[in-house]
């Protein structure tokens, strides 16, 4: 990732690569979210799994166990159908459309629990705006006006036929002109859009085989 970012900054002026997808929740947000538990209610994940995973993206599962009289045991994840989901440690890569169970396997090779996850190809990228405290404000319009030194916090999120999708993925922003800068935020998934000088700019975000355009005019 560090190499990827360094490469992006040298290749593009005032543009930074980063990760696309819904921003990661803070631990407070995780605890507030209703956890998704496995079929046997033994393993639960600390993040919302309220949608399919975008094909081509990845999800890091935050697994928590609730076993009476025991802490969570050492566990490995296993995919039921590696043509849909590939497991890399605690990370799941969505490689094919469909559904696959993910098994939580304990030290004696016994299955502690399992969970079914869906993978769907994205049909659209949407630019979503957040407040500085991380509250979702809404979808950004395709053409906006900013004043010099204005700053927006946005994330680029995949949708399939109107349904939001999960997962993080490599995002490539491209800006024509130097009136705005796009900088990845320290929180994965967010980008800061900073208005630097007056003039029009055309921003393109590319990810998952899709592109979304954004016209920004910076006013003096």
């Amino acid at each position: 990732m560090r190499t990827l970012l360094a490469g992006c900054f040298t290749a593009l002026v005032a543009v930074g690569c980063g990760a696309g997808g819904r921003p990661e929740l803070s631990s407070a947000g995780v605890m507030a979210a209703r956890p998704q538990c496995g079929a046997l209610n033994v393993a639960c994940v600390g993040q919302k799994l309220d949608a399919p995973i975008a094909l081509g993206s990845a999800v890091e599962l935050d697994v928590r166990y609730q076993i009476g009289g025991s802490s969570g045991p050492p566990t490995v994840l296993e995919s039921a159908d590696p043509a849909v989901l590939v497991v890399e440690g605690s990370r799941l890569k969505a490689v094919g459309a469909g559904a696959s169970a993910v098994l939580f396997i304990g030290p004696d090779k016994a299955v502690l629990d399992f969970l079914h996850l869906w993978v769907e190809p994205a049909t659209e990228l949407r630019i979503m705006r957040y407040s500085s405290s991380g509250t979702l404000l809404g979808r950004v319009q395709s053409s906006i006006k900013l004043l010099v030194h204005d700053e927006l916090l946005v994330s680029i999120e995949p949708f399939a036929k109107g349904q939001p999708l999960l997962g993080s993925f490599k995002l490539e922003p491209n800006v024509s002109g130097n009136t705005v800068a796009i900088v990845p935020d320290s929180v994965s998934g967010w980008h800061r859009v900073v208005a630097r000088s007056p003039g029009p700019s055309q921003v393109k975000f590319s990810a998952l085989g899709l592109t979304t355009d954004w016209a920004i005019e910076v006013m003096p």
Binding site: A39, L40, A80, D81, G98, A101, H116
Partner: peptide
Amino acid sequence: VSSGVAFA
């Protein structure tokens, strides 16, 4: 059973 499904 459908491919990708796990069941106990």
